[in-house]
């Protein structure tokens, strides 16, 4: 009984390892985001390819560098001259409904889910250093 379990897990692990090894989706433009805005980050900064995103999003910067006023998205306005942390404070507060960490997570992950591609799991962005 136990033996077959162990062989079972081993088999799954080997297959899975093989699958990731050959399904390289790595971009050649990967860089690690600088997470200086976080006081004591738990994880290393996310890896990210700005160039790939510009291409994929047809140069529409405002999709990510958005502007919100009174909780509403202002269409067409973009904010690439600001740091994310200029608007998104670290701690949740009445005038900060979207703290910095959640802002990042939601922006990236929700889009990746919607688009059906891109990393969505913790360690897919916060790759160990």
């Amino acid at each position: 009984m136990r033996k077959s379990f162990i062989t079972g897990i081993a088999l799954v692990l080997v297959l899975a390892a093989g699958w990731t090894a050959f399904s390289g989706q790595d971009s050649q433009y990967l860089e690690r985001l600088d997470n200086w805005a976080f006081e004591s980050p738990r994880r290393p900064g996310a890896v990210f390819s700005h160039d790939d995103h510009i291409m994929d999003l047809d140069d529409d910067c405002s999709i990510c560098h958005h502007v919100y006023e009174d909780g509403k998205l202002v269409p067409g306005e973009s904010s690439e001259d600001y740091y994310c942390s200029d608007c998104h404070g670290l701690k949740p507060a009445p005038d900060n409904s979207m703290p910095l960490e959640a802002a990042y997570h939601k922006l990236c992950r929700d889009c990746h889910f919607d688009e059906g591609q891109g990393p969505v799991l913790c360690g897919e962005c916060h790759i160990k250093e």
Partner: peptide, 10 residues
Amino acid sequence: HQWFAYRWMV
């Protein structure tokens, strides 16, 4: 630990 097959492991 992201040792191998991260996505599958999750």
